[in-house]
Amino acid sequence: MKKISLLLVFLVVFSSSFAQTKKKQILLIGSFHFANPGLDVAKVNTFNVMTDKSKKELVSITDKIVEFGPNKIFVEWNYKKQDKLDKFYAKNTDSLLNNKADEIVQLALRSAKKLGHKKLFAIDYNQTSFPYDSLLKGMKEANQLDLLKSNEIEMVNYEKSQNEKISKYTLTKLLLDLNSKESIKIDREWYLGIANRVGAVDNFVGAYLVSEWYRRNLYMYSLIQKLTEAKDDKIMVLLGASHAAIIREFVKNDPNFEIVELAAILK
């Protein structure tokens, strides 16, 4: 009897410990802006997600998201305007899906409605700066002409590559490509490989831009952490690909979460 009691105590302690250390799963999706408002530094063509073919893909993709079963879905919407997101979410679903070419609508809202969620969660933090013009000026003033040239070449190559993919790829393939290791690597490398080096010895314009970008994403990740409750085993986060590339670094160093790849749920 004593041995059985000790075994039961061990099992209770072990199961309790396992429950405490089990990581929550994050389906982290980096996306291009479906409506392409032209606000990003890199200018790429618009991919039409409202064609019959793309709509069928959206149904299939979101069906797979439903199979994954996130308890909450987080989106790139100003966190201070959650009330407006709630009102937006409450609008006529068919009207939104048929007329709004936006990744928040076509991926996040479509998935959330299928799952029966009452709302989407806003996590964007906008109170940071991204002084790209100052970055270019800093290169010129510091006579960093090689760095300036490298930046121009990288931007041209990126835009050319993305536009070629947009002309050839399906929506599903585009999203998988954006969330591939190669694309994530390219997204992250620009910040430390080019931007952070900009400026004279006593001018940190490059490091400032990078720190502001990391701060914006770190604050967004803080909101994900705060809004994820103990009962939430799985969540989905839909952000611009450049945001997702940075947030991946935070998730990998957070013992409470683990990333689920988009490729894994679409297989």
Rank of each mutant, 00 (worst) to 15 (best):
residue 189 E to S: 12
residue 220 M to L: 13
residue 169 Y to R: 01
residue 16 S to G: 12
residue 64 K to Q: 07
residue 255 P to V: 14
residue 236 M to I: 02
residue 203 N to K: 13
residue 99 N to V: 11
residue 183 S to I: 08
residue 110 R to E: 09
residue 251 V to E: 04
residue 84 K to W: 15
residue 159 E to Y: 07
residue 185 K to L: 05
residue 248 R to F: 02
residue 121 F to V: 11
residue 55 K to Y: 00
residue 257 F to W: 08
residue 220 M to G: 12
residue 2 K to M: 07
residue 64 K to D: 01
residue 92 N to S: 15
residue 88 F to P: 02
residue 104 I to T: 08
residue 190 W to T: 01
residue 197 R to N: 09
residue 142 A to C: 05
residue 17 S to G: 08
residue 108 A to V: 02
residue 219 Y to E: 15
residue 111 S to P: 08
residue 210 V to H: 00
residue 259 I to H: 03
residue 106 Q to S: 13
residue 213 W to I: 08
residue 132 Y to P: 04
residue 13 V to H: 04
residue 229 E to F: 09
residue 113 K to H: 11
residue 109 L to W: 09
residue 173 K to W: 00
residue 2 K to N: 13
residue 37 P to H: 06
residue 160 K to G: 02
residue 79 Y to Q: 13
residue 86 D to S: 09
residue 47 F to N: 04
residue 207 A to Q: 09
residue 260 V to K: 15
residue 78 N to M: 13
residue 109 L to E: 13
residue 36 N to T: 09
residue 249 E to C: 02
residue 68 F to I: 06
residue 127 Q to E: 15
residue 261 E to A: 15
residue 101 A to L: 01
residue 52 D to C: 02
residue 232 D to R: 07
residue 75 V to S: 09
residue 42 A to C: 13
residue 135 L to P: 00
residue 77 W to K: 10
residue 236 M to F: 04
residue 180 S to Y: 01
residue 22 K to H: 01
residue 30 G to S: 06
residue 125 Y to C: 10
residue 43 K to N: 14
residue 48 N to W: 10
residue 14 F to I: 07
residue 35 A to N: 08
residue 143 N to W: 09
residue 65 I to W: 07
residue 124 D to E: 06
residue 155 M to A: 05
residue 251 V to Y: 05
residue 68 F to N: 03
residue 184 I to P: 08
residue 204 F to R: 10
residue 260 V to F: 10
residue 96 L to S: 03
residue 207 A to Y: 01
residue 173 K to G: 02
residue 132 Y to E: 03
residue 208 Y to S: 14
residue 149 K to F: 11
residue 120 L to T: 11
